[in-house]
Each structure stands twice: as structure tokens, then as C-alpha cells.
């Protein structure tokens, strides 16, 4: 379970209107970007090796999406629905516990 956004992710949905009457009067937002799965932008995917992870959370700290969440056991997980594969997490990991792997799609 992604602990970053909890139920926000499952509740998020795509919004599209068929008739002008359905539009709000002003261009105000109606939902979160969480319905936009940016994971398909990815070429390389980060893979975490729990054995090497020291739970420093530097990867969590520097994720620009954010797509790295903290699991109940204290290790980190990656939400591949959002991860764009930038690789900052792997580059910053002090124990090299994260490797970027070419993704087959």
C-alpha cells in the first residue's frame, strides 16, 4: 500500500465532461493529479535490495514525484504507477541498495 497518499490514489479518477452544462462556471480544479499514472514515461526502473537498505530514507527525501513510500516494516517501496525512472534515488543511495534496471514493456 502506498503510504504517501493513502486512499487518495484509489479515489482519484479521470474527469471529462460531455456537455457544457457540466462544466464549472470558472476554471477551477476538480481533482488531484493522482489519476495520472506517469509510470509509463519510464525507461529504467529502480529496484530496491532490502538486504542493502539501511533505512536512511534519503531516496524518499529526494524523490521529485514523490513515488517512494515507506512500508510498515520500515523499508522503502516504489510506486511504479508514478515513478518516472529519473534514477535520483539510485544515485543518492549511500549503500547502493537501489539499481536502475532497463524495463521490458
Amino acid at each position: 500500500m502506498n503510504t504517501l497518499f493513502g486512499e487518495g490514489k484509489s479515489k482519484a479518477k479521470k474527469i471529462a465532461f460531455k456537455s457544457v452544462e457540466e462544466y464549472p462556471e470558472a476554471p477551477i480544479s476538480l481533482g488531484a493529479t493522482l489519476s495520472n499514472f506517469t509510470g509509463d514515461w519510464r525507461t529504467f526502473m529502480p529496484v530496491v535490495d532490502d538486504a542493502k537498505c539501511v533505512k536512511c530514507y534519503i531516496c524518499w527525501k529526494f524523490c521529485p514525484e514523490p513515488a517512494i513510500f515507506i512500508r510498515e516494516d520500515g523499508y522503502v517501496g516504489i510506486d511504479y504507477d508514478y515513478c518516472k525512472g529519473c534514477g535520483i534515488c539510485a544515485n543518492e543511495c549511500p549503500t547502493k541498495a537501489i539499481t536502475m534496471v532497463k524495463e521490458e514493456k
Binding site: G8, T33, L34, N36, W41, A67, D79, D81, K84
Partner: peptide, 8 residues
């Protein structure tokens, strides 16, 4: 929120 459209 994730799902934003910044570059990698």
C-alpha cells in the same frame, strides 16, 4: 501529489 507532469 504524484501524477504531476514535471520532467524526470
Amino acid at each position: 501529489y504524484a501524477g504531476h507532469t514535471a520532467c524526470q
